[in-house]
Write a protein that binds this DNA or RNA. Structure first.
Lengths: 171, 171
DNA sequence: TAAGATTGAGCAGTCAATCTTA
DNA sequence: TAAGATTGACTGCTCAATCTTA
């Protein structure tokens, strides 16, 4: 009720694409700017609500979520690959979660260079709580999209992802 | 040819949604993760190419683009609102662009608290060059999307944006 | 040599506090 | 009092360099 879900300080009330006009002369660019805008806004909403309601940050939640499925944990490098962030960044975020008692590292059995990080029981319980809220917030953000639209969007994003993958690999 | 467009160090070669499985039990969540993934990957590509080919960062480009249309420049606050970033952040980025001679601030005529920032001729020329490359890179990323798909995606994202806007304002 | 992980420097971003002007 | 802008403290992120083990 009292919680502002959009930026307290400076979030635009009228939501538009960045650079509308300056860069918007081509359909691909307009689509990209609109996609970026949706992604940015939802991400800011999630970030704020995690902070306000749980004192949790999005990157830390991402790590918990990546670990949730694997009972035996994951090596740091694998975590970094899955989350699309650098190795150094994972080191930092994991250290913070360790400090909070939500994850624990142990040396990898076969390879003494590598360490394996896993959820603690506390971390697992905490994640369940966070994931419920996370789903709730996403559902609210997507509330006006009917099932057909959701399905169509899902398919188009799959196409786009393939296209992006090709562009990113060539050259 | 020799430039790796995806992360040098740790970008996943197999591109998937984060948290696949752990959070993916609901369609809205799957759509969101896929959207986020597309956005993140394209943004990383753009960021890297701006850096590699022009020594430019994405946030600075965003400021240049926002200023490009308005011959008379924009107040800092307006810039912050349009780019969906904090006021303090705009201060920093604008200072860097000023140092590079691409933008210039002058005091606002009517209000001595406010300063108005505008492109310099150098900045305007630079932007044109950057914008061309930017469009080219977007076109490559979206190359496999036909016009119909692009149009459909554009429409669905408009729907989504409205839905998000409602969710962000209520409560 | 290379691979897993950490560290340190630097940019980006937020927020709260502050300064100045309205 | 409030609004525009700046500053300082902090998180997150990348990258290059480094350390350790394979």
């Amino acid at each position: 009720m009292a919680t502002p879900l959009i930026e307290k300080q400076h979030m635009a009330s009228t939501v538009r694409e960045k650079h509308e006009g300056a860069l918007g002369d081509h359909l691909e660019v307009r689509v990209w700017l609109r996609l970026l805008s949706c992604s940015t806004i939802v991400e800011k909403q999630l970030r704020r609500r995690f902070e306000d309601e749980f004192g949790m940050t999005l990157p830390r939640f991402d790590v918990l979520a990546a670990l949730e499925r694997s009972r035996d944990g994951l090596p740091m490098g694998e975590l970094s690959r899955r989350l699309l962030v650098s190795n150094g960044n994972v080191t930092t975020v994991v250290r913070q979660l360790e400090g909070a008692g939500l994850v624990a590292s142990r040396p990898a059995p076969g390879d003494r260079r590598s360490s394996i990080v896993a959820l603690t029981p506390t971390g697992r319980a905490r994640f369940k709580q966070l994931a419920g809220a996370h789903h709730q917030w996403i559902a609210e953000a997507f509330a006006d999209m009917d099932q057909d639209s959701l399905g169509a969007l899902y398919g188009l994003l799959a196409q786009l992802k393939l296209s992006i993958g090709k562009a990113g690999q060539e050259e």
